[in-house]
Amino acid sequence: MTSSIEYSALPERAASAIEGFIPTEEAIDKRTDHFASVVPREADKEGYNEVIDGVTFTHHFVDAPGDYENVHWHYVEAGDSSNEAIVFLHGIPDSWYQWHPQMAALAKDYRCIAVDLKGYGQSEKGSGDYRHEGAAEQLYAMLQKIGVTKFNIVTHDRGTVQADFIAANHPDSVLRYGRGEQHLYHFHPSLAPQELLFRESPWTGLMEDPKRFVVWVYTWITKRPISDDIMARVIQEYSYPGIVRAVPRYFNSSTFRQEWLTRRNTLLKAWKCPVLIMQGYESKTQPREFYENAAEYIPASPNVQVRYLPGGHFWTLESLDETTEAIRHLLTMSLK
């Protein structure tokens, strides 16, 4: 059955912004050469502590139910475990590390937990269920196992797709939802040319060189500079064995259109917590004009607000302080 829902027309500004969408091979080669000295880092061990921005981050590994047996998860925690929890979910081509500046800033008052999504970082990369709803249910099972039963959730990009299901399917668990950089009610396929590229990447070799792939994505949709030290770690986190084979499974399990229709038909009306929509002001893939009336699309939420962050798609690392301030605002939003 074909859906009667029509794509949204692109605003003139947004249509102009996606001209010359994909960076040139020469630009990517030059930027990749800049990080030639970056080498993969060793895998972490359970309980390993590293200090970032003066805050201790502890690495954890846990097996939780999924794929008819167990799924192996890696997550990183900062802050007192007795405090209210914030669960952070990253996008592509990232890992838990995407949220390290915000975790460091918030750890004094909150239990901050950042997860490597299934297929990414140091989490499970075996075959299994890579539908976003299936992976989200497995992630939720992991959170229950580690005792995180009520939590705020803050997300970016592909992590947002999974959080959409968690917020809809487990409304009693989600306190507030900081929803970042993902299509909501409006969508047009010209905004997602990467879908076909990522789906075909095992055959085209697009992700074969993790360093070049990370540089390719960040060069494509970043507006503000990101420090070389941070970029080097982003590359390392995407370079763990198995990622380049696991991540494309998501794009072979669903489409951007399917995600969009599921939101429109079922998910948006099921969100019952306060929602802060966070989008890059200069994002090419998610035009800011599409979010101006967000409250109309989420009828069951008691409070829907929109916050535009300076920068492009990767505002979590482009605008560190502004992103932290937005999350602090989310955490003040009344639950009623």
Rank of each mutant, 00 (worst) to 15 (best):
M1S: 14
I5G: 06
Y7Q: 09
L10W: 05
E12A: 12
R13P: 01
S16A: 14
A17K: 06
P23H: 03
P23L: 05
T24R: 11
E25S: 08
A27G: 07
R31L: 13
P40N: 07
P40D: 08
E42G: 14
E42S: 14
A43K: 13
K45E: 13
Y48Q: 11
D53R: 14
G54H: 11
V55E: 11
F57T: 03
T58E: 09
H60C: 10
H60I: 07
V62L: 12
P65K: 08
D67M: 08
N70C: 09
H72W: 13
H74F: 12
V76C: 11
E77H: 13
S82R: 14
W96D: 06
A105N: 10
V115G: 03
K118N: 10
G119C: 04
G119L: 05
G121R: 06
Q122E: 15
S123V: 11
G126F: 00
S127K: 04
G128V: 10
G128H: 03
R131I: 00
E133N: 06
L139W: 03
M142I: 04
Q144H: 00
Q144T: 09
I146L: 07
F151G: 02
I153L: 03
V154H: 01
V154P: 00
T160K: 02
Q162K: 02
I166T: 02
A168I: 06
H170A: 11
D172C: 02
L175E: 05
R176L: 05
Y177H: 12
E181Q: 15
Y185I: 02
H186A: 15
L191D: 06
E195R: 12
F198K: 05
G205H: 11
M207P: 10
E208Q: 15
K211E: 03
F213M: 13
F213L: 13
V214D: 04
V217T: 15
Y218V: 11
Y218G: 06
T219M: 08
W220E: 08
W220R: 09
W220Q: 09
R224E: 13
P225M: 10
I226R: 12
I226F: 13
I226K: 15
S227G: 13
S227Y: 04
D229T: 15
I230F: 15
I230C: 12
R233H: 15
Q236K: 12
Q236W: 02
Y240W: 10
G242H: 08
G242W: 07
V244Y: 04
R245C: 04
V247E: 06
R249P: 01
F251N: 03
S253A: 14
S254Q: 07
N265S: 01
K269W: 02
K272Q: 13
I277W: 00
G280R: 02
Y281E: 14
Y281A: 10
E282V: 01
Q286Y: 11
P287E: 05
P287K: 04
R288A: 07
N293W: 04
A294G: 09
A295G: 00
I298G: 02
I298D: 01
P299Y: 08
N303T: 05
V304Y: 01
G311A: 08
W315R: 02
L317A: 09
E318K: 07
S319D: 10
E322V: 13
E325D: 12
R328W: 02
T332K: 12
K336G: 14
